[in-house]
Design a protein around this nucleic acid. Structure first.
Lengths: 337, 337
DNA sequence: CTGTTAGCGCGTTCAC
DNA sequence: GTGAACGCGCTAACAG
């Protein structure tokens, strides 16, 4: 690796002071056109690049954002990451990505690490930390935005914002669609019991039933692992006990695919014997057979929203931008037309 | 945000010099047990965290690696990213992730940006840059590893390594499997013509045919967009012209799914009328109907390999670790049992 | 075992 | 319009 030119090299070569070079690099006023051009030539010639570290030391700004996700290989979070990266890059920031592996201790570790790296701001997705602990940590950051996790109460640092998915609306939308199609007995495979999203979706499911004058029956709501297998097992059991069910709303697309497989085994036709609605609109949804009706969550948009909020805060806007809400959209396909 | 304690604060509070604090923080020798404990207490009390920037300025090491991918939301690259992050984190590094959006200019931009951020090393996936340009840039990095791109010749900087997928073996494996199953007329939907991977897979395809004494017929190899639609169109056309084809090897799983859809339209039974093999083993493969036989590429492993190579180089090992090769594995499912 | 000195590369303050 | 001096927070090299 060739030795890198530093600002002093450029200054010497151009016969000016370091200060002048600095002004040119940062596009500041107070340099004559000729001087500026001369310096720029030397910069090109020496292939000079300012050292972001030294700059950060002097300015207290690093131009780096932290992004913490449970697992970057999960399509949901990689979609969010894309949105974050796009928005951040457009504003001159780069992002430091860390996985928590769903492990609270590791989440603590990476949060500490990002602090040492002096990120200007933080986007934290689906935190597993307790509110108390989370607040303490977030307070050390210049600014932070939580995705998919609500933090409420008097002790929330003013620098913390959040972006949420309107899961209640999603649940309601899906359930209403099934009701409008004539279904009267609708089950909900609700995913992990610890999931906040699951609760909100159930809330929407429940409200749709109530508004339509249909009974809410707790035995129609069964938790399951958020996987194909989880959906398959839960559906098989539920349908065995309650064959009167004609439609299932599912926690996510994977669960819905599991239901499709269960139907194949039990020889049920979709959507005639059983209508199915998933959640997320992953790449799977249009490709499985039959294609899946699902609630679309714009993952990139989620990342963009979060980053936008964060950048606003970094720009000085502290109040009035504490929360954004992303609305899901129902995408109709063959499994519940 | 509370003001952050710095090393001087700790030193003052503990009644020692900054140097002693530094030694404690970095677990260096030369500090008595009591002093060490006293300092550690103050560190905890003040919640002191070293500033990685200042440290980097002094040591020339930042503890940060750059990861450049075409698109982090592409499951292939997010899988790789996971592997990179895991391996990096285990060694105390964090990663700065940038997307190129398949745009060479943007690739140049992010490569420059990462240079300014003083990353210790770089993992660059599927570069679209010309060799000449790439070499010039990579030479400025302390160390770099290319994924899925070969860089050969005398001018390759010694600090550059690469990790490749044995696509020829993959193509051969898939084609041989079809031949063993009795197929004699096998087509190849080869994906984008610019793809290096595509060429290697075709090479393997060709070799398998030749070894089995079957003719290689160029008209059986048709390029297509690496998408479901691309596969569907290409398959429809190819099968219309050459109905004698009984098996298709596809550039990737998406293309294979397109072929499945084409078969549905033309009422061909899979695998009886047409056997299909995909590539990558994405999440889709086991879930579509029929499930897809495919060449699995361990994406996380790819990332781990790349990072391992990079870290070795950073550790000083310059020769003898310039190349790693990842072997794909044939996963048998219903589309070509 | 511990502290002092110097400097990493850059931007800010104030002079000229 | 330009430059010199100082400091950001930390560590390497050298003293004590």
């Amino acid at each position: 690796m060739p030795v890198r030119a530093i600002i002093a090299d450029v200054a010497r070569e151009a016969g000016v002071s370091m200060m002048t070079v600095s002004r040119v690099v940062n596009n500041k006023e107070g340099v004559s056109l000729e001087t500026r051009q001369a310096v720029e030539e030397v910069i090109l010639k020496l292939n000079y690049r300012p050292n972001n570290f030294a700059r950060g030391l002097a300015t207290k700004r690093t131009g780096t954002l932290g992004l913490v996700v449970p697992d970057i290989s999960n399509p949901f979070f990689s979609g969010v990451a894309r949105g974050v990266e796009k928005a951040a890059f457009a504003d001159g920031y780069s992002i430091l990505v860390c996985n928590t592996e769903e492990d609270p201790q590791r989440e603590l570790d990476v949060l500490g690490l990002l602090l040492e790296k002096c990120v200007d701001g933080l986007v934290l997705c689906s935190s597993r930390l307790k509110k108390q602990k989370l607040q303490t940590i977030l307070a050390q950051y210049p600014a932070a935005v939580l995705v998919n996790k609500q933090l409420e109460g008097v002790n929330v640092p003013p620098s913390v914002g959040c972006v949420l998915i309107n899961d209640k609306a999603g649940g309601q939308m899906a359930t209403s669609h099934l009701i409008k199609s004539g279904h009267k007995v609708i089950g909900f495979l609700s995913g992990p019991t610890v999931s906040q999203s699951s609760r909100w979706r159930e809330e929407g499911y429940r409200q749709a039933l109530t508004e339509a004058g249909l009974p809410y029956r707790p035995e129609m709501v069964v938790p399951c692992a958020p996987t194909v297998e989880g959906g398959q097992q839960a559906a098989a059991q539920l349908l065995a006990v309650h064959p009167e069910i004609t439609a299932l709303f599912c926690f996510n697309d994977l669960v819905a695919v599991g239901v499709i497989q269960a139907c194949k085994e039990s020889d049920r036709a979709i959507p005639n014997d059983l209508a199915i609605i998933g959640y997320d609109d992953t790449i799977l949804a249009p490709l499985v057979t039959p294609s899946l009706t699902t609630c679309r969550v714009e993952r990139e948009e989620l990342g963009r929203l979060a980053t936008g909020l964060l950048l606003k805060r970094l720009g000085g806007c502290i109040d009035g931008c504490e929360k954004s809400i992303l609305e899901p959209a129902l995408i109709l396909r063959a499994s519940a037309p």
